[in-house]
């Protein structure tokens, strides 16, 4: 990214005519990512949106989650994933949403760079370790001004047993991240949904309003420039 900026800067300094400058300026691709929470009762903790190259993998289905993803999925804390993404040259831009995405609401964030893969994740806070995910979605077909709508599925980080107890679910005043991996199957996978006390799991702190089906979020990707 920095080399492209320098090149653009040289272009400016060597050119006296402002019209010509406009013609020759190479604009860095920029995308507006708007996420809508499609659930009835699952607020989503601040999601992370990453623009990256083909080498970066936020998570891989069927393999163990990174500690950073575990931290996001169990406690809604995106800071470690953000820091890791920003520290690697495989990532052009990594941003967190400005806040919680309450059910039915929408938030947008902008990412910028030459890399053309997009990943995102955000915790469903009335779960043990469930999150919405988009993994390495290729953006190269999007022209300037074009937009695309995607529907997101829900994943289970596989790092915490889905007890649904008040003590373990953040939005039920339970704990967030715990380094112990007590899920019998320590692999990222599709989330099977919550059972809830209304369906007979008496130890669950959740009720019918917390149930969900996919898609749990809608994403509109608009290429701005």
């Amino acid at each position: 990214m920095s080399s492209a900026l320098i090149a653009a800067g040289l272009g400016f300094s060597g050119c006296g005519d402002s019209e010509e400058m406009m013609d020759t300026e190479v604009k860095m691709p920029k995308y507006e990512i708007s996420i809508t929470n499609l659930t009835a009762g699952q607020p989503m903790a601040p999601a992370i949106v990453v623009l990256h190259n083909a080498n970066y993998m936020m998570y891989t289905l069927g393999t163990s989650a990174s500690v950073a993803l575990e931290t996001l999925a169990e406690g809604g804390d995106n800071r470690m994933l953000l820091a890791e993404a920003k520290a690697t040259t495989d990532v052009d831009d990594a941003e967190g949403l400005s806040g919680f995405l309450t059910p039915g609401s929408m938030l947008s964030v902008t990412v910028e760079g030459d890399d053309d893969y997009l990943s995102l994740a955000g915790m469903l806070v009335n779960t043990n370790d469930g999150f919405i995910g988009l993994r390495s979605y290729h953006l190269s077909h999007l022209g300037v001004g074009e937009a695309e709508t995607l529907e997101l599925s829900t994943y289970d980080a596989g790092t915490e047993a889905n007890s649904e107890s008040a003590a373990t679910v953040p939005a039920q005043q339970g704990e967030g991240f715990n380094a112990a991996r007590d899920d019998a199957n320590d692999k990222v996978r599709s989330h099977a949904g919550v059972v809830t006390a209304d369906d007979g799991l008496s130890s669950s702190a959740l009720s019918s309003i917390h149930r969900f089906d996919n898609p749990t979020a809608m994403v509109v990707i608009k290429r701005m420039q």
């Binding site: 499609l38 009835a40 009762g41 059910p103 209304d198 019918s208 917390h210 089906d213």
Partner: peptide, 18 residues
């Protein structure tokens, strides 16, 4: 179920039933 209308269109969470 002791619930209220959500107030916005969204993906249905499914019937619970018993």
């Amino acid at each position: 179920f002791n619930v209220t209308a959500e107030g916005y269109v969204h993906i249905h969470r499914g019937n619970v039933g018993d």
